[in-house]
Simulated scan of single mutants.
Amino acid sequence: MDSDHGNESTAILRPQFWSRFTLSELNHSEWEAVCDGCGSCCLIKYIDDENVSDDNNHEAEMVEYTDVTCQLMDCATGYCQHYATRQEHVPDCIQLTIENLPHMMWLPSHCAYKRLYKGQGLPSWHLLLTGDAVATQQQMRAANVGVAGRCVSETGMSDEEMETRVVNWVKP
């Protein structure tokens, strides 16, 4: 993860912005700060597009996550190695926006973007609530959230091998 991910030096985060404003009203720094850095969205996943509803919402039962992650992921830390320039390195990297969020309900159930979109609060361990990165990381591990230490890179892996690596520790 680049040092500026969710932590920009010019960040202007309004107090309690996540509970006072809609996602569409957030500035760039606030939008980035909503991310908990779990890395689950960077895992290779299989989405059953044949059974997607008319509104294209990719519901949870149509998604299988693997423990295989994008080539940019540092599997030890669980952070993108080139977050700010990730789309230059991986052109098909999906950039989560307020516009495409409604079509990404395959995101994990703990995802702060998904939770706020659905009118739920942030998870209790979220950095915006704890204010303590170490406590947040410990609580995320205790809640079985995040890819750090339990993912493998897609680099050099065949499609056939990826298909054998479906996991159940990510809950859409």
Score class of each variant (00 low, 15 high):
Ser29Asp: 14
Glu59Asn: 12
Arg115Tyr: 10
Gln120Met: 15
Gly37Met: 01
His103Glu: 11
His103Tyr: 15
Gly6Glu: 01
Glu25Cys: 07
Cys38Thr: 03
Leu127Met: 08
Ile98Pro: 05
Thr66Phe: 00
Asn100Pro: 04
Cys35Pro: 07
Trp31Leu: 01
His89Glu: 11
Asn57Ala: 15
Trp31Lys: 09
Asp74Cys: 07
Thr22Pro: 01
Asp54Arg: 11
Thr130Arg: 12
Cys41His: 04
Ala84Lys: 13
Ala142Met: 10
Ile94Trp: 04
Cys35Glu: 03
Leu128Lys: 02
Gly39Ala: 06
Tyr65Ala: 07
Tyr83Met: 02
Thr136Trp: 02
Asn57Phe: 00
Trp106Gln: 00
Leu26Ser: 02
Gly78His: 06
His82Asp: 13
Gly78Trp: 04
Ser19Cys: 07
Lys45Trp: 04
Gln120Gly: 00
Leu43Gln: 03
Ile47His: 11
Tyr113Ser: 09
Cys111His: 01
Asp92Asn: 12
Thr85Ser: 14
Asp74Ile: 10
Gly131Asn: 04
Thr136Phe: 00
Asp49Asn: 14
His126Ser: 06
Met105Ser: 12
Cys38Gln: 05
Arg115Ile: 05
Met62Ile: 08
Thr22Leu: 13
Gly39Arg: 04
Gln139Trp: 04
Asp54Lys: 09
Asn100Ile: 02
Thr85Tyr: 07
His5Pro: 00
Gly6Tyr: 01
Thr136Arg: 13
Glu25Phe: 04
Tyr79Val: 05
Arg141Trp: 09
Ser109Gln: 05
Thr69Trp: 01
Glu30Gly: 11
Leu96Met: 15
Met140Val: 06
Tyr46Val: 10
His126Pro: 08
Cys41Arg: 04
Ala133Gln: 11
Cys35Phe: 03
Leu23Asn: 08
Pro123Met: 09
Ala84Asn: 13
Lys118Gly: 07
Met73Arg: 05
Glu50His: 11
Arg141Ile: 06
Leu128Gly: 06
Cys41Ser: 09
Leu26Arg: 04
Leu26Gln: 09
Leu72Lys: 01
Arg14Pro: 02
Ile12Gln: 14
Gly78Val: 08
Glu25Tyr: 08
Cys80Glu: 04
Trp18Glu: 05
Ala84Glu: 12
Ala133Trp: 03
Ala76Thr: 15
Glu32Ser: 13
Val90Arg: 02
Glu8Tyr: 07
Lys118Asn: 14
Trp106Ala: 07
Glu32Asp: 12
Gly119Gln: 05
Tyr117Glu: 10
Asp54Ser: 14
Gln95Ala: 11
Leu72Phe: 05
Leu129Asn: 10
Phe17Ile: 03
Cys38Tyr: 03
Ser19Ala: 14
Ala76Phe: 06
Ser24Val: 12
Asp132Phe: 01
Ala33Pro: 06
Thr66Ser: 01
Tyr113Ala: 02
Thr66Ala: 09
Gly121Ala: 13
Met104Arg: 12
His5Lys: 08
Cys75Phe: 00
Asn27Gln: 11
Val34Arg: 02
Trp31Asn: 10
Gly39Tyr: 02
Leu23Arg: 00
Leu129Asp: 00
Arg14Ser: 10
Asp132Gly: 00
Tyr79Thr: 10
Ser19Arg: 15
